[in-house]
Simulated assay, not measured.
Amino acid sequence: MQAASLPITSGWLWIQNGFQLFKRQPMAMFFWSLMTGFLISVSYLIPLFGQMLLIAGTPILTFITLSACRNIANGKPMLLNMWLEPLHDRDTRRRLLALGLAYLIFCLAGGFFATLPFLDSLMSAIDVDGAIDETALISAMRGPFITFGLLYVIISALFWHAPALIGWHRIKMSQALFFSMVACWRNKLPFLAYGASWAAIFFAIQMVGSFVTSLGVSPGTVQILLTPVNIIVAAVLYCSFYPAYFSVFGANYAAED
């Protein structure tokens, strides 16, 4: 698998191309964004285990998203019965489930190693009677959060392209993780621009919400107004995954054909 090395401007182009994909079939991707948000909300109703299931299922959700975007890019209308077609193959399901389990293990390990150096400061926020000093606890948690954030960048690079590499190219998990890491390293500047652009977009939406609230509109009304906007923006985010993958690994398709 050969990964292309792209200029920094590709990060913004992925978002633009994702928006173009969304415009082709907006209702289909709006539906998928809504369903994904629903699954995320349901996962929080089951403390701990719900989040673990969501993390383990992330590669499957990612592969479904990429497959839908590929169908849209090829001009195929996304019908309701097409969403689960990528999972019809038993071997593909097994590989993606194994990838999800590996992703969960990596995330748990990252959380453990991020917390371990700060364990003493975290424990000091709890007195001998078991009472928690919330201010001290919040201060003590900054270190683990920052450390995990740095570790998660590496974890994300390992798993970013892995669902497509496993599902479409049917290569081994270890190879998929390696190719994904190499691809992300070769394109670290585009991914930096990609992440910064999305951070700016979500920040702008929050600023608009705060501005509307400052005009006297109730926070509940603002939340209602922003909900469809957030769903659409999330749908464009999901659509941008496919251009990011195809621009990096697309040359391999011609070689395989």
Rank of each mutant, 00 (worst) to 15 (best):
N17L: 14
T92M: 10
F118D: 08
L6F: 09
A109T: 02
S156Y: 12
I138E: 15
V182P: 00
A4S: 09
A200V: 09
Q20A: 08
S43F: 10
I171V: 13
S33H: 10
Y103V: 04
G111A: 11
R95M: 15
F246I: 15
Q206C: 00
T115L: 14
P47H: 01
Y103I: 10
L84S: 07
S41P: 00
L215R: 02
S197A: 13
N187I: 07
H169Y: 11
A140S: 11
D133R: 02
L80E: 02
S214F: 12
M173A: 06
M52G: 01
F178P: 01
I55S: 07
T213H: 10
R93A: 00
A125F: 12
L237E: 14
D89Y: 01
S210I: 15
A140C: 12
Y152C: 05
W32D: 07
L116S: 10
L6Y: 09
A164Q: 11
L87D: 13
I72T: 08
M27E: 01
M82H: 14
L13I: 09
I15M: 15
I201V: 12
F31V: 01
L34T: 12
T135W: 04
M173N: 03
Y103C: 05
M173C: 10
I224F: 14
L225R: 02
F178H: 06
I132T: 08
Q175A: 08
F249I: 14
S218C: 01
P228G: 13
L13W: 05
I232Y: 04
L39S: 04
R95H: 03
G209N: 03
A200N: 10
A68Q: 09
N252L: 14
G100D: 06
Q20D: 05
D133Q: 06
I126S: 06
A56F: 08
S214H: 11
I232L: 08
V208I: 15
